[in-house]
Design a protein around this nucleic acid. Sequence first.
DNA 1: CAGCTTCCATACGGCAGAGTATGGGGTTAC
DNA 2: GTAACCCCATACTCTGCCGTATGGAAGCTG
Lengths: 197, 197
Amino acid sequence: MAKSSTENNGGGEKASLTPADWEQEALALIAEKGIAALRVEPLARRLGITKGSFYWHFPGRDELLSKALARWEQQDRQHLRLSLSAGSAPAERLADFVWRTSRQTLTHRIYVALCASPDHPCIGPVLRRVTERRIKYLAAALDELGLPTTEARHRANLMYSSYVGYLQLQAQGLVPDKDEPDFDAYVQHVIETLIEV
Amino acid sequence: MAKSSTENNGGGEKASLTPADWEQEALALIAEKGIAALRVEPLARRLGITKGSFYWHFPGRDELLSKALARWEQQDRQHLRLSLSAGSAPAERLADFVWRTSRQTLTHRIYVALCASPDHPCIGPVLRRVTERRIKYLAAALDELGLPTTEARHRANLMYSSYVGYLQLQAQGLVPDKDEPDFDAYVQHVIETLIEV
DNA sequence: CAGCTTCCATACGGCAGAGTATGGGGTTAC
DNA sequence: GTAACCCCATACTCTGCCGTATGGAAGCTG
């Protein structure tokens, strides 16, 4: 699939656009301006093409959105798997997980955009699956850490809530980004407060 | 202002709509379906009227949004003042604040809707002011509680992040609402983890 | 009862985007 | 070479909303 018709072109120019290209650009657009900004004609203009191409690859806007979200969910799944395979002690694994996720950017922006439309039929299910998967991972690690089951569940919700909320505050520019000096100190504070009981 | 022309009507029927009515309904619509759903014609239909009325009261859509948000910000300010005037010890005041805010609903839904469009020129400033005010309140209380200044600031950010994030998870239906049994236990867990050091 | 103001209905023009229809250029296959 | 197919451009209709223009039905005012 995605077999380019002319492989002999010199530069990085693509001869034609694959569905994957559309999906990738859709995700980028979502990350930048949110779900509402994902419209066919602007997206086509952004790709330097007309919508005639789009409607050849996709039946409609919703199908593009669904495919793009599926792609995003797949990436997120893989990121979780990577964190899981880091087979150290649960406390360090959790801290490492927090540090690792605090370094992402694109995925975060997309996640925030999706959170803005939790009732959309294309978005809700994906969003719920991703969120639940992540929280389950946290709860399991906290449980393994020694917290009672109920406590672990609550703590997982608290940890994840603070993560999601921080993303929101970042979008408002009210809280340091990962490059600014205070950021690391904050993450350290979070780890001390929520993990190292 | 807003002097009703016919005060002698028997029921709750209003003779004519005031700007305050439009703003209130706008807030309700925002709480239900988000900022993007705030459009003039649907809002007029919702009020059983046509947009001819709207454009008599307001210059345009943005002005309605601004006025409605100003009204909402005013309410939020008042709520903070109420919490501040509860002049007990800082720990109890914080716990009380958490409990109190955990009982709101409409304000929360509006806040979540606003968080979805932090870059909108009408929304951003209001959102930032409200958020900053709340966090400052938390930081002051935590500082008064005895935490070092830096710790207090981080902890305030953490508390507020967890609050915002919880709202997001509620919108996804992944976390108990204030009526469900687990909710109180969770709030208690939050207080124990984040306040009662 | 005029006359004025207030509030709303109706009708209009304009714009942006969703889909659809159709044709055409380029490549591949035979 | 030519037929078939892939990919895209162009032109079109349709829908939903914005904002405006204008007129009309109420109410107060004198």
